[in-house]
Design a protein around this nucleic acid. Structure first.
Length: 109
DNA sequence: GTGTTGACCACAG
DNA sequence: GCTGTGGCCAACA
């Protein structure tokens, strides 16, 4: 049992994504042991009380689209490009940049 | 407790 | 390829 609430875990996993890699809402949801909570994850990141602290821009949709961003998708794309990620027509190559979480070691449950 | 909303996902047509 | 529909979950009014 973790002491952290749902949003806390979301931010935590978000921060675990290494530079130059990205992840999807669904992957995070799965890391939280809630594979169906992709929507809740996105909703939580939207509130994003840790806006400048958490690299929420490294989280994209499962279909490879950048998804949305509080400051606009353009902002998100620009940051990802800075990270060294190649973006094509607002889409990212998941098979190259997708980061898989260790849902058993990354964070204690 | 119910209904609505949302940076989502998967499937069917 | 796109559109529509259903389903999932959490937060808020």
């Amino acid at each position: 049992m973790n002491n952290l609430s749902f949003p806390q875990l979301v931010y935590k996993y978000c921060a675990l994504i290494p530079k130059g890699k990205i992840s999807t809402y669904k992957e995070i949801a799965r890391a939280l042991n809630n594979p169906g909570a992709a929507r809740a994850v996105g909703n939580t990141l939207n509130k994003n009380p840790f806006a400048p602290l958490v690299p929420c821009h490294r989280v994209i949709r499962a279909n490879g689209e950048v998804g949305g961003f509080a400051s606009g998708p353009k902002r998100k794309i620009a940051i990802l490009r800075q990270e060294g990620i190649i973006i094509k027509d607002n889409k990212i190559d998941l098979s190259k940049y997708l980061y898989e979480f260790n849902s058993k070691k990354s964070i204690k449950k």
